[in-house]
């Protein structure tokens, strides 16, 4: 240890100044360091193996799939008969109908299309907080949804909402899970990010859009992005990741009594606050009001919203909450 470091440690011991930033409460065993890449729960994959992503209405994918697409197509399911028109494929003429009705009728089939699921995972600095981290919880949700989509041979488009643009993860089968986990492991959370920029550059609209975030962003850009998804008919679903520390910091031991300097995980902004019981109660009341505001905004836009806490068991969330929300089946 250098001389300077020794003096700094002695000074900190004398005056109780450690010089480190408390990450919010007492760190649990095995908690990743701040700024570490998300660590999705891979044990979730067997749980979601039997689940599929469902989307009301026709599938809008371009490729051949197992979902009914709009209009007739080259599917396997019979749709109807229609009179033969020149240019129709002769292989679709129904000989049985000609023998019985003496009319040239052509059999038509439903189009089998795949459906596309776009997942936007918020990797902003605010997600890099909580015990356990909201980032790990959100990444696990994203991994489970991606696995469900790939199980149904749907097209997956995973977008990471980060401060620096990243390449989306695309896939149509379970072989894409490997690159997906690798992409998550390589991501670096932090900074301020916008959902709109992350979702930009897509060539067509998806069947479902899922936004996984703690919504601790500025209201206007987030609502604009959700409104755009809703207008595009992508039936957005907001998975609201909540940490108990955000809602009731006093109960979680995040804010002890006395003078505290609160540091914004995203912007690094600092705010000094004298904390006592009344402040913690006011914080909890403000958190409840904030949740109500988010819920009202989603209802106003027409966005479906489901909440999940970082300590909520993910199997139950997938098998119960998301199925009730109509996203999985």
């Amino acid at each position: 240890m250098t001389e300077r470091g020794r003096w700094a440690r002695l000074w900190g011991r004398l005056w109780g100044r450690s010089g480190k930033v408390a990450p919010g409460g007492r760190p649990a065993q095995g908690t990743p360091a701040l700024g570490a890449p998300p660590r999705p729960d891979l044990n979730l994959l067997p749980v979601v193996q039997s689940l599929r992503v469902c989307a009301p209405g026709f599938a809008l994918g371009q490729g051949q799939g197992e979902r009914r697409g709009p209009g007739a197509g080259a599917g396997l399911e019979f749709a109807e008969h229609r009179p033969y028109q020149p240019g129709d494929d002769l292989r679709h003429l129904d000989p049985h109908a000609y023998l019985r009705l003496q009319q040239l009728l052509v059999r038509t089939f439903h189009a089998d299309r795949d459906q596309e699921l776009v997942i936007a995972l918020d990797l902003s600095g605010s997600m890099d907080a909580g015990q356990p981290r909201k980032l790990d919880h959100g990444a696990s949700v994203a991994l489970g949804l991606a696995a469900a989509a790939l199980n149904g041979r749907d097209t997956l488009d995973l977008r990471l909402v980060t401060a620096t643009p990243t390449r989306p993860v695309l896939g149509r089968d379970r072989s894409a899970l490997g690159p997906l986990v690798a992409a998550l492991s390589a991501a670096r959370p932090g900074g301020e990010a916008t959902v709109a920029s992350a979702l930009a550059g897509r060539r067509r609209r998806a069947d479902r859009a899922v936004l996984i975030s703690d919504v601790l962003l500025e209201d206007a850009p987030l609502l604009d992005a959700l409104r755009a998804l809703r207008a595009a008919g992508e039936r957005p679903l907001l998975v609201h990741v909540l940490a108990p520390e955000d809602l009731d910091p006093g109960r979680e031991g995040l804010l002890p009594d006395g003078e505290n300097e609160l540091i914004d995980a995203e912007s690094g902004e600092r705010l000094r606050a004298g904390v006592d019981r009344r402040l913690r109660e006011a914080w909890a009341a403000e958190a409840r009001a904030w949740l109500d505001r988010v819920e009202r905004s989603c209802q106003l836009i027409g966005v479906q919203r489901v909440c999940t806490g970082t300590r909520t068991p993910l199997p139950a969330f997938f098998s119960s909450t998301l199925r009730r929300a109509g996203l999985l089946q």
């Binding site: 930033v21 408390a22 703690d214 601790l216 940490a243 006395g258 540091i263 914004d264 912007s267 705010l271």
Partner: peptide
């Protein structure tokens, strides 16, 4: 006592 630095998700 100096103010305790606490990192929160958002301000």
């Amino acid at each position: 006592p100096p103010p305790r630095a606490v990192r929160v998700s958002s301000l």
